[in-house]
């Protein structure tokens, strides 16, 4: 184990962004949470699932982008995160190929 050394400071973040940036996102996340709960009790019919999930995805994206700093991440890291989602979509898309078409055969 090498001895501790002074990490080179590659960029200077002004102190205000330490709290202010995340705080704004935090407020936004809580507002979205409230909105999502509110939307649950609106008569949206069949669109409700999509609306609920849509709000959740916006919340998740905010977390990914700001809290997890994908917005400032290297292309490689962005690609890695995308790979997880893309492979997840393989599971959903190809898996659904069975479940969605099965009723067409045996109603």
């Amino acid at each position: 184990m090498a001895s501790p050394r002074k990490p080179p400071q590659l960029y200077e973040a002004p102190s205000s962004t330490v709290i202010l940036g995340p705080a704004l996102v935090w407020v936004g996340l809580l507002a979205l949470l409230a909105a999502n709960i509110g939307l649950t009790f609106l008569p949206l019919g069949r669109a409700k699932t999509a609306v609920n999930l849509g709000v959740a995805i916006v919340q998740a994206s905010l977390m990914f982008a700001v809290f997890m700093r994908l917005n400032r991440a290297s292309a490689l890291v962005k690609l890695t995160a995308a790979a997880g989602l893309v492979w997840l979509s393989f599971l959903f898309l190809i898996g659904s190929a069975d479940f969605l078409t099965r009723p067409m055969i045996s109603p």
């Binding site: 200077e12 973040a13 102190s15 962004t17 330490v18 709290i19 940036g21 995340p22 705080a23 996102v25 935090w26 996340l29 977390m63 700001v66 809290f67």
Partner: peptide, 14 residues
């Protein structure tokens, strides 16, 4: 908690 954790990382950097 995520907000707090996020601040922790950024505070350490400055």
């Amino acid at each position: 908690s995520s907000f707090a954790m996020s601040v922790a990382g950024r505070a350490l950097e400055v």
